[in-house]
Design a protein around this nucleic acid. Structure first.
Length: 480
RNA sequence: GGCCCUAUCGUCUAGUUUGGUCUAGGACGUCGGGUUUUCAUCCCGAAAAUCAGGGGUUCAAAUCCCCUUGGGGCCGCCA
């Protein structure tokens, strides 16, 4: 069997981490099976869909490296892949259902229906359409239609039990008697989700529908529709566990901004996001934690997918991201970090960023951490220069010693190795390296925490380093 | 309220199919220590799950069966 999966988002908002994980699992499964990964845009909701969100979706999917084989920008044998361009196709099937009497026009007003639903809910009964218009004859329907009365199209849902085998959860059974006649379309030109999905998955020869657990209850509805349309039940379903917020409810806007764009802007690497998302609900069965997309494809198996929801754990993402940052080449890292140090050349960033490879959890941190390299004048409290219980006089002396030593080192020897050798020898004499090195480091960086003084001095260059030492000396001297 | 899904450290999870090797393993985070001029990296160590609870089957149960409870999802002319 030629496996075909699809990711079918609706462009009604930014691509968020939950969607991205669904896309990822569809991608992994398809690739693992040597199949095809389809991207279909489900923009039947004209009010909420927008090209802006579709663009966000495409961009972020590209960024994550989840390239689709068919769909927007790729074409494919089942064009078009955007539902708003498939209206004619849906219309035909709608008409067929209507003609066969498997679907009917419903003239109940939205207000009445809503009132009914509220009433049922308050009585503790399962909300369900009563089927008021179900008994209307074809002629009666036609007459009402002619009179211009607004109508929607419903499917005649039989009272039967629908069973399907979920790849992750096993057999799931639903009593359709509890569901009621579902709405297929607002009119012939405005089909709804549950209807278009069935048509497209069939037409596009989708073999595996991999989606969030929140779609479990849509599955029997879609299967009943398949039966009405005369489509065979060949689709295999796999309902993924939900990604949860700290409060263990479905991840949503309530939990803050979980858009992929947000993580991208904060300096998370796509390979880290992919790795993190894959481990949310899936594991390799052994103790490995770090996986490239390529390796995920090799290792992925649906049997290893978890059944219960997984809490989104930011610390874990940070850790994974840090580990990917440490693997990057300085050049590559510099390019990636450039947006966080505006106005600084890539070459300059590259020199600096090597000092931060071990310190970054996300790229955006570089701005605040390394800003002192690019400033003319450092601002920091005088007390920061203090090492242990040494007095101002001692600190001043230490800094002067450093200044003296540094000024004697020729430009050509201005490397962290030479600097370290000479300064360390001097510091050893005192028996407390920090006495010399702490004030020096603070003088150069103005920070409580930073890379070591020798490496910082090297990157800064002799002139700048000396100037900073001098300015620290005058700061200690002053009594302000 | 109805229907459906689900249940191992705070979190992500291994182990459940084929009961015994599990006095339950790893990772993140936390805490302590080492390296070190600071921070981070790296290394070492610790705390952390009476395997949701109860009952049963069995020589033996996290693993099999039953019940209960908790958590979640869905009940739209959204997707």
């Amino acid at each position: 069997m030629n496996v075909r999966t699809r990711f079918a988002p609706s462009p009604t908002g930014p691509l968020h981490m939950g969607n991205a994980r669904t896309a990822l699992f569809n991608y992994l499964f398809a690739k693992k099976e040597g199949g095809v990964f389809v991207l279909r845009i489900e923009d039947t909701d004209k009010e909420r869909s927008s090209p802006e969100w579709e663009k966000d979706l495409l961009e972020n999917l590209h960024w994550l490296g989840l390239e689709w084989d068919e769909g927007e920008g790729k074409e494919g044998p089942y064009n078009p892949y955007r539902q708003s361009e498939r209206t004619e196709i849906y219309k035909e099937y709608l008409q067929q259902l209507l003609e066969q009497g498997k679907a009917y026009y419903c003239f109940c007003s939205a207000e009445d229906l809503e009132a009914q639903r509220q009433d049922q809910l308050s009585r503790g009964v399962a909300p369900k359409y009563k089927g008021t218009c179900r008994e209307l004859s074809k002629e009666e329907q036609e007459k009402q239609l002619q009179s211009g009365k607004s109508a929607i199209i419903r499917l005649l849902v039989p009272e039967k039990t629908i069973t399907f085998k979920d790849l992750i959860r096993g057999e799931i059974r639903f009593d359709m008697g509890l569901v009621g006649d579902m709405v297929l379309a607002k009119d012939l030109e405005t089909p709804l989700y549950n209807f278009t999905v069935v048509i497209d998955d069939y037409l596009m020869k989708i073999t595996h529908v991999i989606r969030g657990e929140d779609h479990i209850s849509n599955t029997p509805k879609q299967m009943v529709l398949e039966e009405a349309l005369g489509f065979p039940h060949t689709i295999q379903y796999a309902h993924l566990p939900l990604i949860l917020g700290e409060d263990r409810t479905k991840l949503s806007k309530r939990h803050g901004d979980n858009s992929v764009t947000r993580f991208r802007k904060e300096g998370y690497l796509p390979e880290a996001v992919v790795n993190f998302l894959a481990l949310l609900g899936w594991n390799p069965g052994d103790e490995r934690e770090i996986f490239s997309l390529e390796n995920l494809v090799k290792e992925f198996s649906m049997e290893k997918v978890q059944k219960s929801g997984a809490v989104f754990n930011m610390q874990r993402l940070d850790w994974i991201n840090g580990s990917y940052i440490r693997q990057k080449s300085p050049k590559n890292l510099a390019e990636l970090a450039a947006p966080y140090l505006p106005g600084v050349s890539i070459d300059a960033i590259e020199k600096v960023i090597v000092l931060y490879k071990e310190r970054l959890r996300k790229l955006s941190e570089i701005g605040e951490l390394a800003d002192f390299f690019f400033k003319e004048k450092l601002e920091y409290p005088k007390e920061l220069l203090k090492w242990k219980q040494y007095s101002d006089k001692d600190i001043e002396k230490a800094l002067q010693t450093v200044e003296q030593i540094l000024s004697l080192i020729p430009e050509a020897d201005w490397t962290k190795e030479v600097l370290g050798e000479i300064l360390l020898k001097e510091a050893e004499k005192i028996g407390d390296r920090g006495y010399l090195l702490w004030p020096m480091r603070v003088a150069l960086t103005g920070k409580q925490a930073s890379p070591g003084p020798f490496e910082v001095a090297e990157v800064l260059g002799k002139e700048k380093a000396l100037a900073r030492i001098k300015s620290a000396i005058s700061m200690v001297r002053s009594n302000t």
